[in-house]
Simulated scan of single mutants.
Amino acid sequence: MMHVRRFTPQLLQVLFVSAMALVASGCSIAQTESFTFQADMPENFTISPMAYYASASGESCSGHNLIQSEQPKGVRPVEFKLPLTDTAKGCSMVLTKVVLHIEGQWGKRDLDMSLQTAGLSIRDEPSEKVRPFPTSGPLVFQGQCQWLFRTMGSKRFIRKILQCRGLDANGVVQKSLAGAALQRDQLAGKTVKLVLTEAKEELPYFDRYWIKTTSGWKPCKGNWGRDIEELCVTPPQFKPFKMPDGRDCTVYPNCTE
């Protein structure tokens, strides 16, 4: 006589939990391929990568998927894992680019900051623009951020604007934003690193609106009669301004001559 085992509710629950554990174990083995992004930045800078995903070739999906990665301010080292693929609404997605949002803090207040971007483009085909990976270590690309100062408002308070540009292999500042083109089939398991530096000297935001003296930069008074600095005239005339802390000044950054 064949013995028939009854599946009690308790036994079914045990079997279900065991099955789920096996599924979870299988998923953990088939991990999504990714690469590591690192950033070496000045102390008063933070960075946040925004990864853009588009539908894979041959699929009838439209639009794109965004995944924003954030890291708390002041956390070092800066490192993110960025998946090369994703799934959205049942569609397979592939990474197409990463926009790197750079925030520089120039003063003590939360509003004393400025934003710039750098980027990584992901290519499927080889080209002259694609950066090859070294035989060992991360692929490194470099950028430099320049602080530009100007005055704003009727009281002419100093404000600063961030401008970040790429550096070539010789350390020469380029007109383009910092970034790199990468080939998709070379990325899995690799590390890409941005080394961002800060220019030693601040410069005026408006060209020919300030004159450099032995004491510092002086904002010009021109023919337009505006509150802010104006195009310098001959002979030059100058305007006083205020530091962010409220001090009345005549030269920047020394304040007094």
Rank of each mutant, 00 (worst) to 15 (best):
N223I: 03
Q116D: 15
K155D: 13
F7T: 15
L84M: 10
Y53N: 09
F149M: 00
R5I: 07
L231N: 01
Y53G: 08
F241R: 00
D248P: 01
T197P: 06
S92D: 09
D86M: 08
T32C: 06
M41N: 07
M243S: 05
V4F: 15
D245W: 09
P235A: 08
G222R: 03
P244A: 01
T135K: 08
A30L: 14
V14S: 10
E125S: 13
E202S: 03
E70W: 13
P219I: 04
T135G: 05
Q38T: 15
C249N: 07
T250R: 06
F157A: 03
Q142F: 06
V130T: 13
S60D: 13
R208A: 13
Q68H: 08
T213R: 00
D110I: 09
S215C: 00
G143F: 02
L111H: 14
G216L: 05
K89P: 01
W210A: 10
A39Q: 12
P9Y: 01
L231R: 00
V14H: 11
R226D: 00
S136N: 12
S57C: 02
R150Y: 10
P83N: 04
L162K: 08
Q116E: 11
T117M: 12
E257P: 06
L139Y: 05
V130A: 07
G171L: 03
S48D: 11
L194I: 10
L12W: 11
M2Y: 15
S60E: 14
G90R: 01
M50F: 12
P253C: 03
P138I: 10
M2G: 12
L231M: 06
K200P: 00
R247N: 13
F16W: 14
S34K: 13
T36F: 02
I211A: 04
A188K: 04
Q31W: 15
G63S: 06
S215H: 04
T151W: 02
F133E: 08
L12N: 14
